[in-house]
Amino acid sequence: MTRRSQRHRTTTLPFSYRNKGVGFDLDSFAVDDRERTALELNPSQTEIDLASAVSSSDSSAESDWSTLTLNGELRLPEDTVQAVFPEDERAQPPAKLYVTIRCHETIYRDRTIVSEAPTTPGEYDVELEIPKDTVRGTVELRPYLVRTEAHPREEPNDYADQKNFRVASGTLYYVVVDGGEEEERAAIDGERVRFSQNAHLPDGNKLYYLDFRNEGRPKLWINSDHPRIAEVLQSRGSVGAEARMRDVILDQVSYGVWVQLLVRAGTAVNAEGEVEHEWQEMVLQTFVRNLYDTSDVSEATHRFRDDLSDPQTLPHVMQRIDSELQEYIDPREQLIHLMEEGLQI
């Protein structure tokens, strides 16, 4: 079974991809302004339980926290670069290196850029900040090497040639930040309920509904009239068919949710470039710089607001939103995992 899965993994994509092409080690963590603490992980350990550590590092510490910082190292070997880039690009690979930060329970995704293009073989220090108000339960961390330039070629070959194609990845870590005993407030509340029995929810077979009746605290409703889907969404595992199906469903839901949140946040920006609610600021901080390829959040926010309000630019900004969310969510990855599971059934 293992050999069959590995063979399929190498042929699923139409270009060379290294699933374990980026080395990733975490060696320490810090909570807020407390001292850094070493992580003593076993060689194959990928789950890191920091629930008690973030609550208090000693008996006198406060039980609350705001930011968890993880430190470590990424390693990009020479053989990975040789495997995923043609010879004429290997000296200065057109690629960036980043670590994704994902939390299923809050539908939160972010990434930390470790190296901009060109990214050459070597070792890179990494520092990952996880804000408490964006996550709950378990946070997933994984590194990716991503192509940054399109390079169409006349003759077919084994290399990716489009911008934003991921060409290598590394170890997936699961960081437990709380035990789930206390109900922390996520950036967006979520609840499963039967739509057919609630007048304020839409009729029909809708899978989800994003409720803005309280603009300061949007709520995501999942329709439990579909019991099998609701059951899969409650799956807590990280491998197996149910976990893969859960991830694909969550990708579909999160795409629609992020589109709505982005448009709502962008149209709420005032003349000074400010918004009223915390979730709006979080959404803008996460996306607008990438939408306009700038590091200036204020400039990107103003441009986003203007583009949404102009019928001439609205179709173009929606296209940019679609492109950014496809990279941000990367539904292809979860679909590939699901197909791999299906081939083994």
Rank of each mutant, 00 (worst) to 15 (best):
D64Q: 15
A186P: 07
H337W: 11
R153H: 10
E62H: 14
K219L: 09
P315K: 03
I329A: 03
V177D: 02
F24L: 04
V126S: 00
P131N: 06
E116K: 14
T106Y: 01
V146F: 05
K206L: 09
N42F: 13
N157T: 06
D178E: 05
D293S: 15
E333F: 12
D161E: 10
R111D: 08
G180Y: 04
P77M: 03
S224K: 06
G137D: 08
P315L: 05
E140R: 05
L308R: 04
A300H: 07
F195C: 02
T171E: 11
A243C: 08
K132H: 11
F15M: 02
R34C: 05
D322F: 14
A53L: 08
R111T: 03
A186C: 06
L335F: 01
V288N: 08
M282E: 11
L338S: 01
T112G: 07
L335Q: 04
L210S: 00
I101V: 10
Y98D: 06
F24R: 01
A271W: 05
K219S: 02
W65Q: 09
W258A: 03
V193M: 07
D125K: 07
T69W: 00
D88P: 07
T80Y: 01
V54T: 01
V193D: 04
D125W: 03
L141F: 00
A187G: 06
R303M: 14
Y159L: 03
I321L: 13
M339D: 15
R36N: 11
A241I: 13
D189F: 02
S16N: 07
H277A: 09
S66D: 11
F29C: 02
F304N: 00
T100I: 06
S66F: 10
L70R: 01
E333S: 14
N157A: 05
D322L: 09
T106V: 09
T11L: 13
R303C: 11
D211A: 03
A241C: 07
D310N: 10
E341M: 02
N164L: 12
A271E: 13
R142L: 11
A53N: 09
E73Y: 11
R303D: 14
I336Q: 12
T134L: 07
V126P: 01
E340I: 02
S55P: 01
R34Y: 10
S57M: 14
P86C: 06
V193F: 03
D296N: 13
G137L: 06
K163M: 10
Y208V: 05
T10M: 14
T69G: 00
P227S: 02
E35M: 09
L325Y: 00
S309A: 15
A300F: 06
D33T: 14
R228S: 13
T112F: 10
E87Q: 13
R305S: 11
Q6K: 13
Q319S: 11
V239A: 11
T69K: 01
G190L: 02
D27C: 08
D203H: 12
G273K: 08
R166A: 09
E278L: 12
R332K: 14
V269I: 10
A117Y: 03
I113W: 06
Q197I: 04
Q334A: 03
R320M: 07
R36F: 10
E272D: 15
F24Q: 02
